Amino acid sequence: MIPGGGKRAFLLGLCLLASVLFSGLGVWQLERRAWKLDLIERVEARIHAPPVAPPEPGTWASLSPADVEYRWVRVTGTLLHDRATLVDALTELGPGAWLVTPLRTAQGIVLINRGFVPHDWKAQSNSAAGQEAAEVTITGLLRLSEPDGRILRPNRPAEERWFSRDVPAIARARGLTNVAPFFVDAEATGSAMGYPRGGLTVVQFRNTHLIYALTWFGLAALSITGLVLLLLPAQKRR
């Protein structure tokens, strides 16, 4: 057992350590909040800006999410319908899939998320037969690759089970080379058949850092209160 004096010293050290730790976590959350607000401001500016050309292949290796994601881009090329991939999706239209189709451009391959399709759409419409190999121009939001699938639901390329738009994995599965490390979420096009339905990108960032910061600072205040009580003479503590 710890003697009375030793126990008091242990509790003093514990309260001191907790107050420093909780204060540090509170400051870290405030820094994260500032970063998140800056990110939201930059993304808001991008999604209201006119479309631009996508990044050139020479810059692909050095792309920074902070600089390019959610930027409106316009790409021109030929859709490779026979190499399309269905990626599991849950949207405001219900469960279904994203139809991800490679677009062959003059600079290389860009994966295009043409939009949402219901689960039974593949049997009805997803056929390369009769699809024209005409040049098309697509406008959409630039998005970065989503590696490995979702939590507890990894992508299984061998089984054609895709739960995220993992650009390198899809490129390998479809035998594609010179593929951009990003994909493009196509805007709504008003297709006569209704599908694929583009324009369903949700641009929303969770920002609860202030609540977390206040929680950590509250715990730090409790730790400091405990420290002060331990430093008071025993008679005053009673």
Rank of each mutant, 00 (worst) to 15 (best):
Pro102Arg: 04
Leu176Ile: 01
Thr78Phe: 12
Phe182Ile: 02
Ala213Phe: 11
Gly96Asp: 03
Thr78Arg: 15
Arg33Phe: 06
Glu92Cys: 05
Ala220Met: 07
Arg32Trp: 09
Pro50Gly: 07
Leu176Pro: 03
Asn178Ala: 14
Arg156Gln: 06
Pro233Glu: 07
Leu229Ala: 09
Arg104Cys: 02
Ala220Pro: 02
Gly6Arg: 14
Glu160Cys: 06
Val202Asn: 08
Val184Asn: 01
Thr91Phe: 04
Arg153His: 09
Trp121His: 07
Glu146Lys: 07
Asp185Thr: 01
Asn113Ile: 01
Gly77Glu: 03
Val87Pro: 00
Leu80Lys: 06
Leu232Ala: 06
Val167Cys: 08
Pro102Gly: 06
Val136Trp: 12
Glu187Trp: 11
Val75Ser: 11
Ala97Asn: 01
Ser191Asp: 12
Asn155Arg: 03
Ala221Ile: 03
Phe205Ser: 04
Ala169Tyr: 07
Ala9Leu: 15
Tyr70Asn: 01
Leu16Tyr: 04
Gly94Asn: 06
Arg238Asn: 15
Asp185Gly: 03
Leu37Lys: 12
Asp185Phe: 06
Leu99His: 02
Pro50Cys: 06
Glu187Leu: 14
Pro181Ser: 05
Gln107Tyr: 13
Pro51Val: 11
Thr85Lys: 06
His81Ser: 04
Trp28Phe: 11
Glu44Asn: 13
Ala45Gln: 14
Leu214Ala: 14
Asn113Met: 03
Thr91Asp: 09
Ala53Cys: 05
Gly175Ser: 12
His48Arg: 15
Arg114Glu: 02
Ala186Gly: 04
Val87Leu: 00
Gly13His: 08
Arg156Asp: 00
Asn178Cys: 12
Pro233Ala: 08
Leu90Cys: 04
Glu41Lys: 14
Leu111Gln: 02
Gly58Thr: 10
Glu92Trp: 07
Thr225Ala: 13
Ser19Thr: 08
Leu99Val: 03
